[in-house]
Design a protein around this nucleic acid. Sequence first.
DNA 1: AATAATAATGAGAACCATTATCAAAAGGAG
DNA 2: CTCCTTTTGATAATGGTTCTCATTATTATT
Lengths: 150, 150
Amino acid sequence: MHGPRWRNNFEERGYRITASRSAILDVLSKKRCHLTAEDVFFEVRKIQKGIGIATVYRTLDLLVQMGLVCKFDFGDGRARYELASGEKGHHHHLICRNCGRIINYDDFLTEETGLVKKIEKELSQKHSFEIDAHQLDFYGLCKDCQKEVK
Amino acid sequence: MHGPRWRNNFEERGYRITASRSAILDVLSKKRCHLTAEDVFFEVRKIQKGIGIATVYRTLDLLVQMGLVCKFDFGDGRARYELASGEKGHHHHLICRNCGRIINYDDFLTEETGLVKKIEKELSQKHSFEIDAHQLDFYGLCKDCQKEVK
DNA sequence: AATAATAATGAGAACCATTATCAAAAGGAG
DNA sequence: CTCCTTTTGATAATGGTTCTCATTATTATT
Ligand SMILES: [Mn+2]
Ligand SMILES: [Mn+2]
Ligand SMILES: [Zn+2]
Ligand SMILES: [Zn+2]
């Protein structure tokens, strides 16, 4: 996820590479986790003093549309954004119901990736659906919250 | 998902079985799909004329907490509720990015269920996480929207 | 049955993440 | 520089959800 690639991507579509936009991409590149729009906003303001929250939302939308960023909704009322590092970089989630902690994992079981592909193929045919992505999340209690709740 | 079970469940916890509450459960039982709170509200009003939207939200929360109802968030800004029919009744989703259509499927591949269990076990150990549920969604374009977009 | 205690409810206000609006600023083409 | 398009920030508006609070319904106690 370094410069040239997304720069080309921008230019091809006639989008301008502005300071705000590249600052937002910088933040997403460095903090590789599930940032809310607000998180991004505060982080980017350290670089781009005057940036407005609207620009953050607009840019995030843009990046999602371009496929450079993934948008998640874990059910706590705010969207989360994360750099889409393509095939490699794809991961699934463990989400704590108590504290909201989110754990990424990409050390899939050997069967895991293969089966998901197989399911996708099967479902595509059966439902005439053109699948381009999937999301697998596990919900429960994290280590710390297990004690706490008991 | 018929009477006695959830009635007991309610009484055990000291919750009252009111007309509104059982009307809401009725609606969820009959319309077996992903209803928004508003959907439920309008549907229930046919039975319980004076019911307020706040009661719908409160009751849905209650039912989710009790494990009788599942709450989903497919990223369109509104939560969806659906009767949790336990082990049987569990299903995964196909979601159209264009029109928002949601397709349930529970005709899992034979390997599908087994593998998910295996992953859960593995993840539980590795991350000391107590997993109690999972959600698997596939995103893409439904049959109708494939033509439209092209 | 009457009374007291508690739980549930409806109306509407409040909340809060996200979107829309719009005038100003910045960037690019010539 | 000039014209035209895109981007931006401030702020208002939106819309789903939650909160507040006075009223009502249900249950427990006498
Ligand atoms: Mn993630
Ligand atoms: Mn479903
Ligand atoms: Zn936790
Ligand atoms: Zn569709």
